[in-house]
């Protein structure tokens, strides 16, 4: 083995977009390749070496019994395990089935539902094994990924902010879409990292990076409702790529329970 750290990339239930961020680092890729030994990365190379690995980048959520086992082996083989993206850190969009069971989804989607063996839930990697660092996003920001890898190489903590998207809007000079246009935006409760992309194009934040540090969701959803947005619509907005992240899940459950109660009242 060379003296370079051995890097492995693993995929679970996901779209592959996050691990492709590594390949999207076009300008930095050669420099990065000079500092790490990529020994397992199915999207990029047919070279497949067994562990142990110094760093494992794990994409995707756990949705099958096989994957429940496989992640245990990845953990055993890896010194430092980093999860990438909303699927791996929160269960992903596929965690929507956690509210309604997988049978309806399987029957609706697959021509031969009997071929499918899946768990009832889609869960984050950290629900199964110890995770050393979670990198958020749907998809992740490739420069944040680079920062994580650099910090590992340098032996320091990654500097990925945990504050909300509003900070990035203000730094880039974006005018608040909620205040100036009345657009519903999850920016005040969503972790930064995307560079506040959507509000710069007059769209509200979709919450792709999951809850920010200590998000205060109730006053935000109260305010959205005071502005005429229905509780159902707010719950739907919270239930997207990071639906099962605890802070978003709890608030969408609270709103959904209110709606259910209202509907059951004659």
């Amino acid at each position: 083995m060379s003296a370079q750290p051995r890097l492995a990339v693993f995929k679970f239930a996901s779209c592959d977009g996050c691990q492709l961020s590594l390949l999207s680092l076009e300008d930095e890729l050669l420099q990065l390749a000079a500092r790490v030994d990529v020994v397992h990365f199915l999207e990029a190379t047919s070279r497949i070496e067994p562990g142990p690995y110094d760093v494992a980048l794990v994409e995707g959520s756990i949705t099958t019994a096989d994957d429940e086992q496989r992640i245990q082996q990845v953990r055993r083989d890896s010194k430092f395990l980093v999860t990438l993206g909303a699927c791996a850190t929160a269960g992903g969009i596929q965690a929507l089935k956690n509210w309604s069971g997988s049978e309806a989804f399987v029957n609706a989607v697959y021509a031969r539902p009997d071929y499918i063996r899946t768990l009832e839930t889609s869960t984050a990697i950290a629900d199964h094994v110890a995770v050393d660092f979670e990198l958020r996003g749907c998809p992740i920001n490739k420069y944040q990924l680079l920062e994580v890898l650099q910090s590992l190489l340098a032996g320091r903590r990654p500097r990925t902010p945990t504050h909300c998207v509003c900070v990035e809007c203000k730094r880039r000079g974006t005018v608040c879409v909620t205040v100036a246009q009345g657009i519903a935006c999850l920016g005040p409760v969503t972790q930064a990292g995307c560079g506040a992309l959507c509000p710069a194009y007059d769209r509200g934040c979709y919450g792709c990076y999951g809850p920010s540090e200590q998000p205060n969701l109730v006053p935000l959803t109260d305010h959205l409702r005071a502005g005429g947005m229905k509780a159902e619509a707010i719950a739907t907005a919270l239930r997207s790529f990071n639906a099962y992240a605890p802070a978003f899940r709890q608030e969408s459950d609270r709103l959904a329970a209110e709606v259910a109660e209202r509907e059951s009242t004659p």
Binding site: H163, C164, K170
Partner: peptide, 13 residues
Amino acid sequence: ARRCLSCTNCTLV
């Protein structure tokens, strides 16, 4: 504290 989002907007504007 129950109303504030701690979103930083007041300080950055």
